[in-house]
Simulated assay, not measured.
Amino acid sequence: MQGKAFGKKKGGGGGVKNNNSGQGMADALAEITKKSAYFQQIEEDVEKYSKSIYELKGAIGKFKTKDMNELLQFYKEVESVLENLTDETQVLARIEDFPTKKLEALRTSSTLYSKLESMIKELKNLKIEPPLPQLLDKVSRSFTKIKGDIDALERTKDEEAKIFKGYNIEFDFQIIVRIKETMVDVSSDCMELALKERREGDGQNKNGGVKLLWRVFQFAFQVYTFAGGHDERAEKLTQELAQEIEKEAENQ
Rank of each mutant, 00 (worst) to 15 (best):
K51V: 05
A59Q: 13
Y224P: 00
N125M: 10
I128L: 03
S188R: 07
L85S: 04
E192F: 02
Q204F: 04
S80G: 08
V46S: 05
G13R: 08
G24Y: 13
T225V: 14
E96P: 08
I53H: 03
L153E: 07
R155Q: 06
E248F: 00
D202Y: 10
E70T: 12
L82M: 02
T100W: 09
I146G: 03
E104C: 05
K51G: 01
Q222Y: 13
A161I: 08
L82D: 01
L123R: 00
A234T: 07
A93K: 15
E96Y: 13
G24D: 14
A249V: 10
T89S: 12
K51T: 05
E55W: 02
F173I: 05
D189K: 12
M25P: 04
N251R: 15
L92C: 06
I163Q: 11
F226N: 02
A152M: 04
F173L: 06
Q90F: 10
K66R: 11
T156R: 15
E43V: 01
K4R: 12
S50E: 14
T238A: 15
A28G: 02
Q252S: 09
E55K: 11
T144D: 12
K121L: 11
L116S: 11
Q222D: 12
L56Y: 00
L85G: 03
G22Y: 11
E248I: 01
S80N: 13
F63V: 10
Q40G: 15
Q40C: 10
Y54P: 00
T225R: 15
S50W: 06
R94N: 04
K196V: 08
Y54Q: 01
N20G: 03
T182W: 08
V16M: 12
K48F: 03
V186M: 02
T182N: 07
L153Q: 10
E70L: 08
E79V: 10
Q134S: 02
A242N: 08
K17F: 05
I163R: 10
M183W: 01
G13S: 07
Q252Y: 03
K157N: 10
N20L: 10
N19C: 04
E240T: 06
I128E: 00
E250K: 15
K76G: 11
F143N: 07
E200S: 12
G15M: 12
Y224W: 06
N18A: 14
V186Y: 02
A234H: 09
R155A: 08
Q243I: 03
Q174D: 14
